[in-house]
């Protein structure tokens, strides 16, 4: 399992990027949905976060969300084959760490669209 360093450099898990950031944006809104799915897949192979001290924050941008992690959590890819390795998120000696989640996009005639898989 990969343990993410909380120094702001990104780790990629398939079509999403995750990195530690210093603060939540002002317009972020807390989601109470369970399980914490950070990236829905058209074919059901979601990327989910497993851990007790995790909250998901959404933004107006469809490809941008945030996680607040207190303690330990794991970002998992729910597919039985060609599975992307899990990523361990750990607030370490801090009360919490904020992670930015970016979904991958691609070019389209209208500008861009989210990568569908």
């Amino acid at each position: 399992m990969i343990k993410i360093k909380n120094d702001g450099t990104p780790v990629f898990q398939g079509d999403l990027a995750i990195r530690a950031v210093s603060a939540l944006p002002d317009q972020a809104s807390k989601s109470d949905a369970q399980p914490v799915i950070v990236a829905h897949s058209e074919t059901g192979h979601h990327h989910v976060v497993v851990g007790d001290g995790v909250t998901l924050w959404n933004t107006d941008h469809p490809l941008l969300s945030f996680l607040v992690v207190r303690g330990e959590a794991t970002l998992e890819h729910q597919r039985a084959w060609d599975t992307h390795d899990p990523i361990r998120l750990d607030s370490g000696d801090k009360p919490e760490v904020i992670y930015e989640i970016r979904r991958q996009r691609e070019h389209s005639p209208d500008g861009w669209r989210r990568v569908q898989d």
């Binding site: 990969i2 450099t9 990104p10 990629f12 990027a17």
Partner: peptide
């Protein structure tokens, strides 16, 4: 990923 190249290329 809507990132700058400088941030992207540091990926762990």
């Amino acid at each position: 990923y809507d990132m700058t190249e400088d941030v992207f290329k540091l990926f762990q």
